[in-house]
């Protein structure tokens, strides 16, 4: 059974707007009574209004003080809503389980498909024609030479490997993580140098 929120629920949903409205009406009522008093005392309507407004003081500031005085109510109402939600879910574990399952599946499916679309459409690899690029892992240098010289399957083949180097700088040594690439690496990926030049073909001969 699903119970609709009762008076407290409705009151907190619409609470803030309702309270503002009630505050306005309450202050207007007070002001109108002050004006009536002044009229009874023999003032002209304009004067009665002016004096009443003067006596009443700054309405905006007063309203702000009232808001602050009742301030913690919002937090308490939010807490009540959470309590109510938890109670309802505990009251009805089957319904709770189904709701959570549906939400989890929905969110999961969406995240997965957005992730794929994001990679394919919104953030393709920053290379020329990424859809034609394939990666062959864990092959030796000789494999690489074979595949490149075969020339049947790929329009071009570049090689890359991770390597570590130790660099000496007067008396300090530092480990650098580098990537060694074949001379045609940047040409295969279609990456243009912002400055200077890439490697010449003869520069990667062993």
């Amino acid at each position: 059974m699903i119970r609709l929120p009762g008076r407290t629920g409705i009151r907190s949903l619409w609470g803030r707007r309702l309270r503002e409205y009630e505050m306005d009406e309450e202050m207007m009522f007070h002001l109108s009574r002050l004006i009536e008093d002044n009229l009874e005392a023999g003032m002209s309507p304009a004067e009665a209004r002016r004096v009443a407004l003067r006596d009443f003081g700054g309405i905006c500031q007063l309203k702000e003080e009232c808001r602050q005085a009742s301030g913690f109510r919002f937090i308490r109402e939010t807490r009540q809503d959470l309590h109510y939600a938890v109670r309802q879910l505990l009251h009805n574990p089957g319904f709770a389980f189904l709701t959570i399952l549906v939400l989890a599946l929905g969110i999961g499916a969406n995240t997965a498909s957005v992730g794929v679309i994001d990679q394919l459409i919104f953030r393709p690899l920053p290379v020329l024609e990424p859809e034609r690029l394939v990666s062959i892992s864990q092959s030796s240098y000789l494999d690489y030479v074979d595949i490149r010289n075969d020339g049947q399957v790929f329009s071009d083949v570049a090689a890359t490997d991770f390597a570590g180097y130790e660099v000496w700088d007067s008396d300090h040594s530092r480990n650098l993580s580098v990537r060694s690439v074949s001379a045609n690496f940047f040409d295969v990926l279609g990456i243009k140098m912002a400055a200077g030049r890439s490697f010449y073909p003869e520069e990667d001969r062993l």
Partner: peptide
């Protein structure tokens, strides 16, 4: 005063 009454 209204300024004290309503906040109270």
């Amino acid at each position: 005063r209204q300024g004290s009454l309503y906040p109270a």
